[in-house]
Write a protein that binds this DNA or RNA. Structure first.
Lengths: 191, 191
DNA sequence: CCAACTAAGTTCAATTTACGAACTAGCTCA
DNA sequence: TGAGCTAGTTCGTAAATTGAACTTAGTTGG
């Protein structure tokens, strides 16, 4: 909404330049995220969602409509007479899970009380706890966000040649996402 | 706000039972997330944020106040006469990065046009692209969200005994987070 | 000295959005 | 016949957002 997106009809033409902004246009607000959380829990129906979230009906209807429109959910009939529908995650929707898991793990780590996190997520086959911190497959080590840097992906102007993938060391103008000194200094520490 | 949190003074007493909900009370909305994105880019000052985001001043002030209050930012003076402040991520704030990275990667994958994602995130020392999908250190394999299950962490009632940590195979009542059949079925596919 | 400018806000009226309660539609069950 | 269920819509009020103007405190230029 801030980055003006004039043409109303064609959706997703002219992506907002930042994928976070683009994602946020679909993952609109708190309610949307809570709906998604419930979807991952297997709650698929209007009234089940409404009861579980205590969300106003009008808002639930609106968010579901919007999520279907953007391809995160499919609305499918599960019974005729009377017609009843449920909302199921598409593959696009399923892939939102890292966002939810990250949110949950951050909440677990920084907001849960003495008793520890309310629920744990595990890899089902082996019950190993899921951990979403950063790991580099080249260096074979975990790293902190201060070691993340960003580099231009696609050029907005028509690409001159298809780049030969990013392998080894591009070494092009990469800018540190995070200045040094951010990790140091003050602020509460935990664990 | 839906899950009533009566006492205003004491913060974070009575966590909302779900860490996602708890996290969302701090990561309130689109603006907050965009402010955080900019913070990770090194933008620290009121007017720089305002210019970059084109966010209404009142909202920026409110969100910064709220983020400082919750411990995500520290407000620190960078000059006297006139007094000027900047907002810096605390360690708690830094750890929000997986959420932003997940959002960005989802946007990259599902919302970017023909030209591909606008920017790539890489591990600075080696320029390896960052990938936030799930990986199990026990099974030594990547897995999809359908293999995530959740199990009770802390009990809300006073803990009877400190549990001997979760190791090997708890095997207690774990419920699949995602029903089978969610991954299958319809919906757009990509890549 | 005066005017213009900067940074970090606050205040205010107008608009938008959210909220809760009531209502509708279509059907089932007793 | 009447109550109940699911999936909504409608509507009046309450709250949040928005953009513009104003404030405070100091700096810079002429």
């Amino acid at each position: 909404m801030s980055t003006a997106n004039s043409s109303a009809s064609a959706p997703q033409l002219q992506p907002p330049g930042c994928s976070i902004e683009a994602a946020l246009e679909i993952v609109r607000d708190r309610w949307t995220i809570l709906i998604l959380r419930d979807a991952f829990r297997g709650i698929r129906r209007f009234d089940d969602l409404r009861r579980d979230l205590e969300i106003p009906r009008a808002i639930l209807a609106d968010r579901l409509r919007s999520l279907v429109e953007s391809g995160v959910f499919v609305k499918r009939q599960y019974q005729q007479r009377p017609e009843r529908f449920e909302y199921r995650l598409t593959p696009m929707g399923m892939e939102l899970s890292p966002i939810l898991v990250s949110l949950m793990q951050w909440g677990d780590r920084w907001l849960s009380g003495e008793e520890g996190p309310p629920r744990l997520l595990v890899h089902e086959p082996c019950a190993t706890e899921i951990d979403m911190s950063f790991y580099c497959w080249t260096c074979e080590e975990a790293f902190t966000p201060s070691q993340i840097s960003s580099q231009p992906g696609a050029v907005t102007a028509p690409a001159v040649h298809s780049q030969p993938a990013l392998q080894s060391r591009p070494a092009v103008q990469s800018q540190p996402v995070l200045q040094e000194g951010d990790l140091k200094n003050n602020g509460a520490t935990k664990s």
